[in-house]
């Protein structure tokens, strides 16, 4: 660690700028000074201060457990009492089954051309919400990449040892069952994922579930054979291009409603016959975009958590 806590002559602003530029960690600037002051004073006064702190901690731990149990039990009791007073489960006259869902079911096919009411709702009526969801996934993969990305040429000794061990395990001929089974299953998994994405508007499924299936297939392949064979197709370049391209396509096809407002159901794209695969206007391309983003994100999570790189 390259903390240079020895030079105390800098002003606070200089320290702050150094922290912003990433040259110095913040805790070395403020916390260490404070701690050395406080702890130094304390150790002089009470030599057995750690014992006292431990005793207080043990007591407060007991109080904490007691109160957390009481709070949870009362909370759950109130909620259970409320659940008893709620309207009956599965009754069609419940206030939740109001004109909103009725309108989605009755006018969904005419408005959007998609047979699946949930797909019509999330990708046509509320398309900007789904855009927000996709951006949330994108943001989380960016955060994971920031936190976990490893530099292959700049590893600490322990990480280097782990890396070499992983390579050994991958290159060993031990996991024959996994390799054979994944060779059988992998094409079927990918095919099923593509099917779920492409049929998102006429059957249960859609971009999120299909993308998760494709991501799981990529994870299976990567776990069995290592990422060397997959590197030609799924590497950092293709990953960023696919994710950013799909998000941009989504934004330019549906994001204008952030500025124009109102519902944007009327579009120049023909809706087609409901029930065919080429129907539903923009729902099919948007499903493909969402599926690609989700697949890349799921595989990205896996590879960042295991290898620290994509």
């Amino acid at each position: 660690m390259t903390y240079n806590s020895s030079d105390n002559h800098e002003s606070k602003w200089e320290k702050f700028f150094k922290w912003v530029n990433g040259e110095q960690a913040l805790d070395s600037v403020w916390e260490k000074e404070l701690k050395s002051k406080i702890l130094g004073k304390r150790q002089k006064r009470h030599k057995s201060i750690e014992d006292v702190i431990d005793k207080i901690n043990a007591q407060s731990k007991k109080i904490y457990i007691f109160f957390s149990i009481i709070i949870t039990v009362t909370y759950i009791g109130i909620l259970l009492y409320t659940a008893v007073l709620l309207p009956e489960h599965g009754n069609e006259l419940n206030p939740t089954n109001n004109e909103v869902s009725q309108r989605y079911v009755e006018n969904g096919v005419n408005d959007t051309g998609a047979v699946n009411a949930v797909s019509a709702m999330i990708l046509e009526y509320r398309a900007f919400d789904t855009f927000g969801e996709t951006v949330a996934l994108f943001a989380s993969i960016i955060c994971v990449a920031i936190l976990l990305k490893k530099d292959r040429s700049n590893l600490c000794p322990q990480e280097e040892r782990e890396y070499i061990e992983d390579e050994k395990i991958l290159n060993a001929d031990g996991n024959g069952i996994l390799k054979f089974t994944s060779r059988l299953i992998f094409p079927i998994v990918i095919l099923y994922g593509v099917y779920v994405i492409l049929n998102g508007h006429i059957s249960p499924g859609g971009g999120f579930s299909g993308g998760a299936i494709i991501g799981a297939g990529l994870i299976l392949y990567s776990a069995a054979y290592g990422d060397k064979n997959l590197k030609h197709i799924v590497n950092y370049n293709s990953f960023s291009k696919v994710v950013c391209g799909c998000l941009l396509v989504y934004f330019f096809s549906k994001g204008y409603s952030f500025f124009t407002g109102g519902n944007h159901i009327k579009s120049i794209i023909p809706k087609g016959t409901p029930g065919n695969i080429l129907s539903g206007g923009l729902i099919l391309p948007l499903n493909i975009c969402v599926g690609a983003v989700v697949a890349c994100t799921i595989y990205g999570f896996y590879s960042y958590f295991t290898k620290g790189d994509i």
Binding site: G90, N91, E92, V105, E106, V115, N116, A117, I202, P274
Partner: peptide, 20 residues
């Protein structure tokens, strides 16, 4: 909603669960 199916809309059937 009891005795209703998933909201994949077919002709002649308007009995679906709540899609929201």
């Amino acid at each position: 909603i009891s005795n209703r199916t998933a909201p994949i809309i077919r002709e002649g059937n308007w009995q679906y669960v709540n899609p929201v």
